[in-house]
Design a binder for these strands. Structure first.
Lengths: 190, 190
DNA sequence: GTCTATAGGAAGATAGAC
DNA sequence: GTCTATCTTCCTATAGAC
């Protein structure tokens, strides 16, 4: 407790991330962010001089990094496609806490800060990167590019749709059903 | 112009709805709602004494009514299933402005007012009603209940996922791709 | 690096004239 | 029914002690 940094940086981002994922950008007040992290508002400003917008940006970047390391990179390995998809489902389940946590990309896309939306590019890039990684796996399983793209896009739609539905109905069932069907959606017989 | 009600009730709800769909509940300030409708804040309070929460509730109810009249009821008719699905795609395209407008159900699910979220039940009910109506059409096409439910849930996931993706990428392509595939997703050969 | 205290402004909500 | 003007509360952000 004698240390100056009483809260670990990674843990701090995690807690901020949970708030943004839960109530969105506008819904996340500095008071709520302070309470969730256990820091006072002034301390948050010390670490994030640009305030809420910087927090959201760093949370978004951290999520991108996590996805790159835990999902995109494993998907690009040359292990068997079905093994890669098996790992994918486990990582997705972890990332979204089994469907209990909504997706940042969805909750931050309505944040209109300054002109044009500050997070728009980062969000679009992240969607594209996931689709691209999935497409590669499907192609490695022997499907042509058009079919692989179709399956990759559909799977990302199903992922986010299942999260919307899970949050809207207050049940993790849609997300679990999505995960269960994912191997077949990506690699099943045509 | 001599009338007292200068703005039509339906049009008023439509404009409020557009704001909530765009920026969510917390993102929709009274100032923004006033500007969008052309009414001053005090005038909005005159029509909605309980303020923003009442506006969102009425907008949600109006969307539910629209869906019942234009989607659920047609889906329960006894015309051929493929004709019903054809009408469904046109109505969905209209409802979401061809993918340019996000779904209220998604943007209002993060609104945590009072304890438990005031809109939660209405949102859950609307999701269930749509799934239920789709399930019936699929069953009318000769599929068993389990398969019909699977297809109905998947289609609703694809719908909302395509809207999330369309908003996140700034393109209506995902939504259009969803609409194009919908007839096959619901009624295609197993 | 974290805190208490507070400035400054935006947001929700109301009063009362027309 | 709509407006202008105002009140109050909440929120973002900063100052300065420890």
């Amino acid at each position: 407790m004698g240390r100056q940094a009483r809260i670990d940086d990674g843990e701090l981002i995690d807690k901020l991330s949970a708030v943004f994922s839960d109530v969105g950008f506008q819904g996340a007040s500095m008071a709520a962010l302070a309470e969730a992290t256990g820091l006072k508002k002034a301390s948050l400003y010390h670490r994030f001089p640009d305030g809420k917008e910087q927090m959201a940006r760093e949370v978004l970047l951290a999520a991108g990094d996590w996805m790159t390391e835990n999902i995109l990179t494993p998907l690009s390995k040359d292990t068997p496609p079905d093994a890669r998809v098996g790992l994918l489902t486990r990582r997705l389940s972890k990332f979204y806490s089994g469907g209990k946590q909504a997706c940042l990309l969805n909750l931050l896309s309505s944040a209109r800060i300054a002109e044009g939306g500050v997070f728009a590019m980062e969000i679009a890039t992240t969607f594209e990167a996931l689709i691209s990684a999935l497409r590669k796996v499907v192609m490695d399983a022997g499907f042509d590019k058009a079919e692989a793209d179709r399956r990759a896009v559909r799977s990302v739609m199903l992922l986010h749709g299942s999260l919307v539905l899970s949050r809207g109905t207050g049940s993790t069932r849609p997300f679990k059903a999505f995960l269960e069907g994912l191997p077949n959606d990506l690699l099943g017989a045509k």
